[in-house]
């Protein structure tokens, strides 16, 4: 589904990603772990099309298209979804209005008619139940005054509404208590199928108890330095990142 080759990216002249290689196939869940500052969030921002970053080398193929050639909104319409580590609060814009606009612009780009109000409401009802998101929150402004857990559940709710091909979850577990973590994971797992793929970016192994990955990668100093299966995550949890750093620096 997505094939990242030798991806280099920098911000303000400082190189953060120094040659990422990653291949994710439909139906797979990949976890990307790594210590702070290793480039995890940069990778997700770059894939989503954040223009603050400059791509200096490498390529990203997404379902046969050169992803880097497309704008943020075009990538979203092609099926790339980023669940933000820190979802943005947007006072004055209601969740519902925002989502309807997002869905309709995506449909329009595919030459489809706008969604009927009745269908939209039915979809909202179904998908919000999935992450146990209170309907009163949906009528409120985007993320404004939401708790940390509510913001993350709202991210997964948006993901459910937009039905992406590739979902990138950036530290979705940060700031979540165990109950919220279970709800969010349940949402992600329910949305998973053989046609889509998920990249889970996380600092801790805990989330991977609930969203079980097929592959685990360790990102360090802007490169993937180790790959394995879910057992690698357990090893990291037990031993920390120091042994990886030593291996790399040796």
């Amino acid at each position: 589904m997505i094939s990242i080759k030798n991806l280099h990216a920098s911000i303000d002249g400082k190189e953060i990603l120094k040659g990422i290689n990653l291949e994710v196939k439909a139906g797979e869940v990949h976890a990307i772990m790594g210590p702070n500052g290793s480039g995890k969030s940069t990778l997700s921002s770059v894939l989503a099309g954040n223009e603050d970053y400059e791509i200096t080398e490498g390529s990203v193929d997404f379902m046969g298209e050169d992803l880097l050639e497309y704008s943020t909104e075009e990538r979203a319409r092609m099926g790339v979804f980023l669940a933000f580590q820190y979802p943005i609060e947007i006072p004055g814009v209601s969740n519902m209005n925002f989502l309807r606009t997002a869905i309709n612009e995506t449909r329009e780009s595919r030459g489809e008619e706008p969604i009927a109000a009745k269908d939209f409401l039915a979809m909202v009802k179904e998908k919000s139940a999935l992450v146990e998101l209170d309907n009163s929150l949906l009528k409120r402004y985007v993320n404004e005054g939401f708790s940390g857990g509510e913001k993350k559940r709202n991210e997964i709710f948006q993901m459910a509404m937009l039905e992406p091909k590739l979902a990138i979850l950036d530290e979705t577990d940060s700031g979540l208590d165990i109950d919220a973590l279970k709800i969010v994971s349940h949402g992600v797992n329910t949305l998973k199928n053989q046609e889509n793929a998920t990249i889970v970016i996380t600092h801790y192994q805990r989330l991977l108890d609930y969203i079980v990955p097929d592959f685990v990668h360790v990102l360090y100093k802007g490169k993937i330095v180790k790959s394995g299966t879910k057992e690698l995550a357990l090893e990291l949890e037990e031993k920390g990142y120091d042994w990886i750093k030593e291996e790399v620096n040796a």
Partner: peptide
Amino acid sequence: VFYLQSRGLSKESATALL
């Protein structure tokens, strides 16, 4: 603006919405 774009809104509609 980036947040809204990442959900499929064009830059123009994201700006207009804000």
